[in-house]
Design a protein around this nucleic acid. Sequence first.
DNA 1: GTCAAATCGAACTGATTGGTTCGATTCTTT
DNA 2: AAAGAATCGAACCAATCAGTTCGATTTGAC
Lengths: 222, 222
Amino acid sequence: MSETSEIPVRTGPRNRRIAGADPDKRRQILDGALQVFTSRGFDAASMSDIATAANVSKGTLYVYFEDKEHLFVALIQREREAQKRGAIEALNEDSDPVRALSKFGFCIVRVINDELAVSAHRVVIGVAERMPDLGREFYENGPMLGSRLIARYLDRMVTEGKLAIDDTYLAAVQFLDLCQSTLTRPRLFNAVRTPPSENEIRHVVGEAVAMFMARYGVKPEG
Amino acid sequence: MSETSEIPVRTGPRNRRIAGADPDKRRQILDGALQVFTSRGFDAASMSDIATAANVSKGTLYVYFEDKEHLFVALIQREREAQKRGAIEALNEDSDPVRALSKFGFCIVRVINDELAVSAHRVVIGVAERMPDLGREFYENGPMLGSRLIARYLDRMVTEGKLAIDDTYLAAVQFLDLCQSTLTRPRLFNAVRTPPSENEIRHVVGEAVAMFMARYGVKPEG
DNA sequence: GTCAAATCGAACTGATTGGTTCGATTCTTT
DNA sequence: AAAGAATCGAACCAATCAGTTCGATTTGAC
């Protein structure tokens, strides 16, 4: 499940690397696959194209990945993992909700609207009907995880009396959705071809925080 | 652009129907196409399967639609049109923002999370990279249109002094996103296989309205 | 009932693709 | 330098699929 990104460098007899176990080559293949999959989608991406894009022979491709679907899954997991790391380190432990939420919202919205991330989203959603497990896994370890992270932070703020929230998970999702209002959806549909500027993001996140505090902030006095 | 759903019944000499102009047959084909496209996605859907599902010969299929892509576009436009009609009639003219927003939110969330609508969303997003025009068109005449509708209503409420909003379009999108928090995204990724219950929808929409009013409602006094 | 046109259906074409094979080549270790 | 394994690359196979063709059959206006 998460033995994806860190493959130990296995060696065979006589201390020689085993076929399909070179992590650099693996990365190289995944990079090529990323290009092709994200620019054409799952079905229209041909294995030959991927091999070419990765500067690898088709034979080697199949030494590293047993078939197209496994390659795709491995790729998605790698990307998801990268997002996860980004998100986790973005949630700093600022004890001021406004500062913490602003910072986190900004970071995560920027990541989510990045070219590659949007493409990956599109592809996963596109195959979700035929590969429900992949869709669910991606969702649970991506968006849902981010929400849970924020929810935990909100829990703390509630016990510290800095926020008044009944359902912190719902509140977390609300916040994340607000941060993306007008930004992410048009990108998903490819109606806007470039990521939002940092200023746009800052503005929308600012409004999100304002709305969030209007609802869940504790009044200065009773 | 929107001559899609109402094709006049053209007739040829001797008052006979022209090939590929029977609206019933056209509907029949689109219905079959809907089944196949939504259950398999654009690429994996074969024209033969569609012909079978529609109870129509492949030859006839190609009489009515010049190729796979045109068929798909026609189908998406029909579905989008249906959604549009649903949304427009849902926005009643209640002068109480809480009631109006609750009603509208509920209706639109139910429509959006319906089985077919979600599938259509998935497919459009999935091909958005290769067919950007379709994606944009679908977005602008779907989600974006809904937002604009609400924005107009909000404008009115603002001039009537019932709400205090700076950017009504942003507020509209925020509201729609709030209404879907925790509901639509997992459905898109197929992490939740059934539409939310009416009670769930009511609850989330209720929270959305509460949050919206906390931010944009005018204080009773002061 | 007749006749023309629409539809059927079933075979066919040409192109693409996932996946395999295998001898030639390049690394890497000793 | 020599061997042994990974990699290359280019041909190859079987399957699938978009789109076409055409004679047989149905339909509907007269």
